[in-house]
Design a binder for these strands. Structure first.
Length: 262
DNA sequence: TTTAGGG
DNA sequence: CCCTAAA
């Protein structure tokens, strides 16, 4: 509260919007809506809450200063539109890297692996206007002190957008694994996806896992852009090869032990 | 940071 | 894709 007060400084005026139109007489409207009984606005309160899914919670957290206030929210008149318009007021995300907390729009991924349909479709789900919720008007002193920074990271960080592997990417992955094996994903990444910033070696490892699975199930159970059976065959082949390759490499400790086991 | 696997 | 124990 202190931090918000400091930021708002001169004060805050909350406009009541109805279907995008500003309501002139707020007090009158509140009375008509049965929210207020008249001039006694003292017993009215409000809370500023982010839309859980669309917008991460605004946390007063020193480690994440960029989460405080979007530049467009701190306008000269210190006026905040609590009811998002059609635009949502986030049209400047692409031009404000530091404030980008919605998604990885700025990933400069020039897929060396030419993938035709690489249209990143971002959910433009329109924010919904939440109905009013009764909130017990307890005194400020008795409000529960909730740790401002105590919010799991998983709640803050935006999950990376899904990017299905294209056939050409699978091709590149298979070729790299055939050469390097299934235990050097860092090298595989560098070899075949060095300039695909959104593909991490963990992603490649995961993709290989799903590829092996895909190759084992019936074509009818497979989903997404169908991968050529020929490629899937290479997957199983490479998988089998490197599997026993690793088995040989182990043999407990070495050739010497192999003799002792006889 | 990477590897290796379960979630 | 994410989360992470191990290395």
């Amino acid at each position: 509260m202190e931090a918000v007060t400091a930021i708002l400084g001169g004060g805050l005026h909350v406009d009541v919007l109805l279907q995008g139109k500003k309501v002139r007489d707020d007090n009158k409207t509140l009375v008509q809506a049965g929210i207020s009984r008249g001039d006694k606005l003292d017993d009215l309160g409000f809370t500023l809450e982010p839309n859980s899914i669309q917008a991460p919670p605004l946390l007063i957290c020193p480690e994440e200063p960029r989460l405080l206030l979007p530049s467009d929210a701190a306008q000269p008149q210190t006026k905040l539109d609590l009811v998002p318009t059609s635009d949502g007021g986030r049209s400047n995300l692409k031009s404000e890297p530091p404030l980008n907390l919605i998604g990885n729009y700025l990933e400069s991924d020039h897929d060396s692996v030419h993938s035709p349909a690489d249209t990143l479709s971002v959910d433009k789900t329109t924010e919904d206007v939440r109905p009013l919720i009764a909130i017990p008007s307890m005194s400020v002193e008795s409000l529960p002190m909730v740790p401002a920074c105590k919010a799991r990271r998983s709640e803050i960080v935006q999950r990376r957008i899904r990017r299905p592997f294209s056939v050409s990417e699978v091709e590149a992955l298979v070729q790299a694994v055939e050469k390097l094996g299934t235990g050097r994903w860092r090298d595989v990444k560098i070899r075949a996806f060095d300039n695909a910033k959104h593909r991490t070696y963990v992603d490649l490892k995961d993709k290989w896992k799903t590829l092996v699975h895909t190759a084992r199930i019936s074509p009818q159970q497979r989903r997404g852009e169908p991968v050529p059976q020929q490629l899937l065959d290479r997957v199983l082949s490479a998988h089998a090869y490197w599997a026993q390759q690793q088995a040989k490499l182990q043999s407990k400790s070495g050739p010497a032990d192999a003799c002792l086991l006889i």
